[in-house]
Design a protein around this nucleic acid. Structure first.
Lengths: 338, 338
DNA sequence: TAATTTTATGCAACCGCTTACACAACACTA
DNA sequence: TAGTGTTGTGTAAGCGGTTGCATAAAATTA
């Protein structure tokens, strides 16, 4: 039905191997023959069949992407789609395709990984998860299947990963607040089974102790979810603690913009103001506020880009490759509503 | 390296064709043999190679997705990622893979489509674009390549598409405002080269005329972009027109939540209040406001789901399939900040 | 019991491309 | 001039499956 390498070979009066070699620009073919074959290829509008090529090369030139996140998060946090654009960009630059599968169920990601690996439809996988003891990582490692992870995993031994320096990020943002004159600074952390949560906590702690400020347990919260609810809850908590004599913080370092939004909503609700809030991800919250709000932009598309770079480097067996990339973050002052 | 159908055949003492038939559960194989072969398959942990299968079947069992949207839009509007989850869901239920490629450049989508089609790495394509005279649609149609479109295209002849009833949506939301007592209602439209813009305009117009309300040209705006800027611009425009005697509307029907946000920001800036605003897409804007704000949820994941359904139906040559689906919308009252 | 049909399986070609190896033609060396 | 090396191209065997056709064995019919 479609024009194949055979048709080209016949039309050009050469063998298929010659055509194949012309396509890959092999030095073993004379310039003359190359010209002739290329002309026929143009005329017949021939394009190699990617699947046949994959079979012969034992390589699909495709990377798989597994999204195993709550739809809610996917929708509110542009992180994922941004990372995906970065992945797609690097993949295209290197003639790779990108497959993705979304599955929100627990262990759904593992099922997909198993399918990808067994059917050999992808050459490697990019994981978004970075939970401690991730099952996918275990599975892929055991099967010696190329993969890279967005978010530093628990066990980095033999794993390719990209991440921000989360320690540095909260350290920086805390220092920034301190520089602005704050000393009583609250902290809201993320789930304890994410490394990112521990790093962010340490970064905050370091900045505080270096400046000689105490860490008040009553205004630091850990093992929370990256959600609005958790943010509101913590803020309300602090507001009610105030009545029992615990003064409110003058600034709050949160681990996610959703948390920050929750904090701001609770502040608004309880008519509290004048507290500087910081978050992560530069989510387009666009809220009307006269509060000071700063977000750490994690540069998600770069994270995706480098995750793809690491993975494809591994697939192609390139030598002397880094095992990870640290993508810089930058502070973004979120413009108030007016 | 990996266990193939040959290994299974040898181990089970049958031919590869028998193994193949066992896998596809052919009725021509005896129950006894099936059992035996299946046992070997388990023991050897055999999984068919998807690529070899694709080559033999001349079908990749993969659909391609082309994202050709400004990164800014992709990030702010959850529409795309939502649609993608819907597509992925239907694809998985039907054993299809999903490939995606992101390219924001003008005609980048066409390049990707050409690559997908020529290399035959996908069996069909889902387009997000619905610009009038879309080049991709033309290309795919000419090549008789299966595709479906999210967003009713200009020429529906022979095209599979899904969309909301955009006429009905703005009609409904306008009626809703009228029901609430509004009669002087402004309208902000989208780009004229999108069908959706015309439909939304007509829906608004119909509701207004049916109720005998005039359409005041000075408070209706068309051919705008789906952006905050356009929203602000129109609002500022109306505010300054007020000084020249044109009264402000009491409600504004916009074609996008970003436009609505722009309107709200401009109102805030100019200290105008008490105008009901509506938008589209149920974007998580989370703004602090005491204004009334209603969004039309377009049910993006359903749109994706049905686009995949139409496409896969076409690919598999199913008969008596619909040529399009209309996905219902629903009004969402966006909760104010408190 | 022989003829016919049904059932279960194997053979081999094919999907479209890559590549190790063979080999002819020519150029160079001794 | 025979021997050796280089260059350009073809042959054929894969890659890992699917499937039309042939066929042997078993079941059915007359």
């Amino acid at each position: 039905m479609n024009v194949t390498i055979n048709d080209v070979a016949k039309a050009a009066g050469v063998s298929t191997s010659t055509v194949s070699r012309v396509i890959s620009d092999s030095p073993r073919i004379s310039e003359e023959t190359k010209q002739r074959v290329r002309k026929v290829i143009k005329e017949l509008n021939y394009h190699p069949n990617a699947i046949a090529r994959s079979l012969a090369n034992k390589s699909s030139k495709t990377i798989g992407l597994i999204l195993n996140t709550e739809a809610e998060t996917l929708v509110r946090n542009p992180f994922f789609i941004q990372a995906m654009t970065g992945i797609s960009q690097y993949a295209q630059e290197n003639s790779y395709n990108v497959m993705f599968a979304y599955n929100k169920s627990e262990d759904g990601d593992l099922d997909i990984a198993v399918r990808y690996v067994n059917s050999r439809s992808v050459d490697g996988i990019i994981l978004f998860t970075s939970r401690t003891n991730d099952k996918c990582i275990g599975f892929l490692t055991r099967n010696n299947f190329p993969f890279s992870v967005i978010g530093r995993p628990d066990q980095t031994e033999g794993v390719l990963w990209v991440d921000n320096d989360n320690f540095k990020a909260t350290n920086q943002v805390t220092n920034y607040l301190i520089m602005k004159g704050h000393s009583r600074i609250s902290f809201l952390g993320g789930p304890q089974d994410h490394n990112v949560s521990r790093d962010r906590w340490e970064g905050y702690k370091k900045a505080m102790t270096v400046h000689g400020y105490s860490i008040d347990k009553s205004i630091t919260f850990q093992d929370g979810s990256f959600s609005e609810e958790f943010g509101s809850e913590c803020m309300l908590n602090m507001i009610s603690a105030k009545e029992k004599g615990t003064p409110l913080p003058t600034a709050i370092v949160t681990s996610d913009d959703m948390q920050a939004l929750g904090v701001l909503k609770a502040m608004r609700k309880m008519n509290v103001s004048g507290i500087a809030v910081t978050g992560f991800n530069n989510v387009p919250i666009s809220l009307y506020q006269n509060e000071s709000f700063t977000s750490v932009d994690v540069n998600a598309s770069k994270l995706g880009f480098f995750a793809a770079k690491l993975l494809i480097g591994k697939i192609e067996g390139r030598k002397n490759l880094p095992t990870h990339y640290i993508v810089p973050t930058n502070l973004v002052e979120v413009k108030p509503f007016y």
